[in-house]
């Protein structure tokens, strides 16, 4: 029997281009449905909720912009929360980006042990934050922890009381977050490094460029799209820091590590102020949006895409 795959007549009537378009949308459909229900709908709903006073357990009551007015004028914690979030973001992002770049440069060689080291640095990324934070609480223990043990051995007389002081609590959260994040950024940088053509380095060497000059004039400029990506993603992630704070310090001591998302969570699920929490969430969204917009605008000045 000869198999002649006869095209179904119905299909044949639709031009190929249109058929592909339809197929494309069909492939997108599952994702789109999920997005519409679980993201778009939730976003719109949260905007509506932010205009109400709602305790989840009784019917919501429309209050207009009262929540926004209250949080901008009458919430003594909101300013603390903003400051803490910015503190966390503007320390942890540069540090983790610089460290990740350094590690990527170190590991961008052909040594045989390199995959092992890469895996080691990537492990924290795929480990649950709760587990990581639990381990770090042991490290931070002032009497029995390994961190202060090392500091004592190095001759530091009174090492910090990490999690228990307002000065050191946020740096502790930052240390943990950097340690957890750096592997992810490192992998992205490695991909960026490997995309730089080796011919450029060879040509530069022939022209007499040293290691620093090659780094400064080839690696850094050609890596800027990667750096841009890492910065955008890290800043968005950092502005939403939550689980590390919850487990490590519970927002304390005395609100020293209370961040925006922690504030949202507590207002919503501890004090049952869902309307107010939704309003804070919208402020966070506006902040993320503005910061990202600013980064997009500024990228023209420093990001070089290969021609």
């Amino acid at each position: 029997m000869t198999e002649t795959p006869a095209k179904p007549p119905a299909r044949a009537r639709i031009p190929l281009g249109q058929r592909e378009t339809v197929a494309g949308y069909l492939f997108l459909l599952p994702n789109m449905i999920g997005f519409l229900i679980f993201t778009a709908f939730a976003v719109v709903a949260s905007a509506a909720i932010s205009l109400t006073s709602w305790d989840l357990l009784s019917d919501p009551e429309f209050v207009g912009f009262q929540n926004y007015i209250e949080l901008l004028t009458d919430d003594p914690l909101f300013r603390t929360v903003l400051w803490n979030t910015f503190y966390f973001t503007f320390v942890s992002v540069p540090v983790s980006t610089a460290l990740a770049l350094g590690l990527a440069l170190m590991f961008n060689t052909g040594l045989r042990a390199i995959p092992l080291f890469r895996a080691m640095y990537f492990l924290p990324v795929i480990t649950a934050t709760v587990v990581v934070a639990l381990i770090w609480r042991w490290f931070f223990n002032p009497d029995f922890g390994i961190l202060n043990y090392v500091l004592y051995e190095l001759g530091v007389d009174s090492p910090p009381n990490w999690l228990a002081t307002r000065t050191w609590a946020m740096p502790s959260v930052i240390i943990l977050s950097v340690w957890k994040q750096v592997g992810y950024n490192m992998v992205i940088f490695l991909a960026g490094l490997q995309a730089i053509p080796t011919t450029l380095y060879e040509a530069a060497s022939i022209d007499g460029a040293g290691r620093w000059q090659r780094f400064r004039n080839i690696t850094l400029p050609l890596l800027t799209p990667t750096t841009f990506f890492v910065l955008v993603i890290s800043i968005i992630g950092s502005l939403q820091v939550f689980d590390a704070v919850l487990v490590l310090t519970d927002g304390g001591p005395a609100n020293a590590t209370r961040t925006i998302v922690y504030h949202i969570w507590e207002e919503a699920f501890v004090f049952l102020e869902m309307g107010y929490a939704a309003a804070v969430a919208w402020i966070l969204f506006i902040m993320v949006f503005l910061v990202t917009l600013l980064q997009w605008k500024l990228q023209k000045r420093w990001v070089h895409y290969e021609a």
Partner: peptide, 10 residues
Amino acid sequence: APPAAVTADQ
């Protein structure tokens, strides 16, 4: 009694 920093981990 230990300060919070000591009990925080364990």
